[in-house]
Design a protein around this nucleic acid. Structure first.
Lengths: 191, 191
DNA sequence: TTATCTTTTGGGCAAACGTCCAGGGCGATC
DNA sequence: GATCGCCCTGGACGTTTGCCCAAAAGATAA
């Protein structure tokens, strides 16, 4: 077979992925153009349409791959925490790192919005969220959550995304102060 | 003065606002074009640049006005609830109405993202959020919140936006089930 | 070397873009 | 009726867009 060529192709494809992910965060989903992503990846404009049917296809593939890795990693790291309290501490630590300047936080939100306009992306994203929720829910149950663990997981996932959104608007927000109400929410014991 | 003409101008301006708000929700901030918004408002393309310096200017003005009204109304309605429990019920009722099909829910999120790229919008949005948070916080305090009311308000505002985002992705999510963890979060009494 | 594969190039195309502007309409004022 | 001020029209401009493609380049197999 054509081993070296294929390898080179895969590398280019990956560079296009990286460029797309960065640019979605910088200029928004609708602001990414063929030439932009090609220049960022260091290739000629034609390469984009050689590897992908359309720019939107590239954006869907790239963002889905990125989000899949991010959610998977987050779920893994969170659920390996020994108890809810330290899980929360880890989460808040991660959150304060997302200032909006990094590519990840706006990208995820852009993806949610794009999912509303692209059914294929919508389905893929839904699976990821479902997965994340159920992993968190079972982690909550194992660690002594007394209430509706599914509901708590749904709310936690939404809160995280909401906080990313708000935090990017105002990075001065005191994230650590949120530990108390979040703990109340997660322990499922409303006094 | 030229009373009739000015009035007609104001009406056109309002129609452009409405068209812009609807279109941001439908095609995204970056997807709104001069001709699109002109056609939706029922005017010639040139009118847009007669009333506004640029398309982006229109989007900023329109979305800020819309969000200001929405946040104001939400804060008013929430804080006129007699206790935290019924406030929560009202909030969840509103949330289940936002399915993502309406223009409001994606618009707000689009605005957050656009704010990261347009400092003027960012400042205006920040004021609105601050306002909403402090109104909610004082409402929480009045109604017997025992912990850090500011932190709870921040988390509540973020959760609402996050839930809007998640709910638009999966309208089947059971919103009512979130009442319990939200109540735990808001009463500020972690078991 | 020659032939065959995949990848890459750089330019070309029609369409859509934001913005501008000369001119027409229309009520109020003189 | 003439003039003024504001609003609106519709087309023009230069630029940028997504996508396409003939040809070159690189790697492998014969």
């Amino acid at each position: 077979m054509v081993e070296r060529s294929a390898e080179r192709g895969r590398a280019t494809r990956q560079r296009l992925f990286d460029a797309a992910v960065a640019l979605i965060g910088e200029v928004g989903w609708g602001g990414v153009t063929t030439r932009m992503v090609a220049e960022r990846a260091g290739v000629a404009p034609g390469v984009v349409h050689y590897h992908f049917a359309s720019v939107n296809d590239l954006l869907v593939e790239a963002s889905a791959a990125f989000a899949g890795a991010l959610f998977g990693e987050a779920a893994r790291r969170l659920t390996e925490q020994p108890d809810i309290g330290s899980g929360l501490d880890w989460l808040l630590g991660e959150l304060s790192g997302y200032t909006g300047a990094d590519p990840a936080s706006p990208l995820i939100v852009e993806m949610y919005l794009a999912a509303g306009r692209h059914p294929e992306l919508r389905d893929r994203l839904r699976v990821m969220i479902d997965d994340f929720r159920s992993q968190v829910a079972s982690w909550l149950r194992v660690n002594g959550h007394t209430g509706d663990a599914e509901a708590a997981a749904v709310l936690l996932a939404a809160s995280v995304d909401g906080l990313v959104l708000h935090h990017s608007l105002d990075p001065a927000t005191d994230i650590a102060a949120l530990a108390a109400p979040l703990r109340a929410m997660l322990t499922g014991q409303p006094g």
